[in-house]
Amino acid sequence: MTGTILVIGVLALIGVGLYGMMILHNVLKLVVALQILTKAAALALVAAGYMNGQLQLGQSLALTVIVADTMVAVVGLALAVQVRRHFGTLDTRALSTLKR
């Protein structure tokens, strides 16, 4: 039962994150949505470890995920700063062709 609820929770977080990725058009908020997704992934690894009785292993994996995705977020923020500097806005629609 616990496992089922955890899986539903992870799925809900993933859903929220993906929804954000689809509707948002602000570079910085896209990074926020990315962070929601990665937190869901880290939780999924811990939950997986909890469910199969290897919690410590799950924790070690989640630590690597947190570090790696923090680096992605940091690079994303730096990109956002540059986008703002050179486009004068964070709006992805001003980047003109993101959808093509």
């Binding site: 689809m22 509707i23 058009h25 602000n26 923020l77 700063v81 703002r84 964070l90 959808k99």
Partner: peptide, 16 residues
């Protein structure tokens, strides 16, 4: 980052 960029509310229709 927000302090550097400035808090700019972006509205308008989303891509999807």
């Amino acid at each position: 980052a927000i302090a550097v960029i400035g808090d700019e509310p972006i509205s308008g229709r989303s891509l999807t």
